[in-house]
Design a protein around this nucleic acid. Sequence first.
DNA 1: CGATTCTTTGAAAACAGTCAATCTGTGTGG
DNA 2: CCACACAGATTGACTGTTTTCAAAGAATCG
Lengths: 192, 192
Amino acid sequence: MFEVFEAYLRAKISLTDEELELIRAAATVKHLRKWQYLAQAGERWHSHCFVCQGCLRLYRVDEKGQEHIISFAVENGWIGDRQSLLSGEPAQSNVDALEDSTVLLFTDESFQQLFRRIPAFQDMINAILARSFNVIQDRIHAAISYSAEEKYQDFLRTSPHLANRVPLAMIASYLGMTAETLSRVRKQLARK
Amino acid sequence: MFEVFEAYLRAKISLTDEELELIRAAATVKHLRKWQYLAQAGERWHSHCFVCQGCLRLYRVDEKGQEHIISFAVENGWIGDRQSLLSGEPAQSNVDALEDSTVLLFTDESFQQLFRRIPAFQDMINAILARSFNVIQDRIHAAISYSAEEKYQDFLRTSPHLANRVPLAMIASYLGMTAETLSRVRKQLARK
DNA sequence: CGATTCTTTGAAAACAGTCAATCTGTGTGG
DNA sequence: CCACACAGATTGACTGTTTTCAAAGAATCG
């Protein structure tokens, strides 16, 4: 399964065989079954997680017991509770698998070591962080600016690969509306 | 005005006088009057901007001409269109001053140079980026999970310094509701 | 003081949420 | 192979929240 990450790396930076080995040695492969937690709220989160295969979600549960999905990650995506990673505080979020999945885990320490030895790797990670910063900023814009219908259209535009892969109720949660509302929005759009 | 940034730096990392001079040399001080643009949608954005004094906002204007505020920045904050900075594409957002303000501008090139010469500076910036990533993630959670009243309470909790500094209509825009709704929410809360 | 901007209020309309029932498709066990 | 159970999706009626539009009241600045 490391090959997926290798291909991902090679597409972004050039590495010597030796450097690639360092990275491989730092990675832990983990298989997750559908619904299996990778992390639960209350625990500490120490890792960087790359998705080789499958689909995961990051979500929080509010006082009323409702789940709110912060983000999805599929193949070639990253996911995890940065908050907990950075602060050392227990995570507020849960991460679990929506399909049988395979992920690569890197402890934060091993990441820091890799950074020191392979500057290009650090540059890559920084670029990824910066890019995801933009994505998340677009998401805020969508959340505060759009109606339910517009939100769904924006979702279809930005995440077409998720629309038929993730249950409707979860997309609704991700967009901040109820499943019923999303179902009606969809019907509306189909009519057009 | 550089003193504000100097104090900010010294609180976070230790620097030699020489290093501090490098940073000072890279900075451009800019004074902005109330309502003055620092950046407009359509232009390219090349800089990193630190606020020494005053208050700025980052916002987008939608097709209907409505403004949606993505973020505020006051003293010791950073602001700018990362999207444009990173991609080189024209900015989708505007930045302007809500009060007479003073900011420090650093071109991205000079930032990269500083990174090479002062690793601690790069670490600091990376830490800031990571932290703001968390802030923005909390904001998403609030935007998709809370009712109008809850959003405002969350805002009071996370940004008490802004509540009496920024006009109500702008807070409403930031929270994704109309000024009328926020006014009513406030009245509701006052009653309690 | 007058002009302008910001905020509040009211009434009606649009929108989204809730609850309960039904429908659909999938997979399981008899 | 069928019947059944189950989860996910849809629909309807109703309720509650938020927006819209218009007007009136504060507050601020020259």
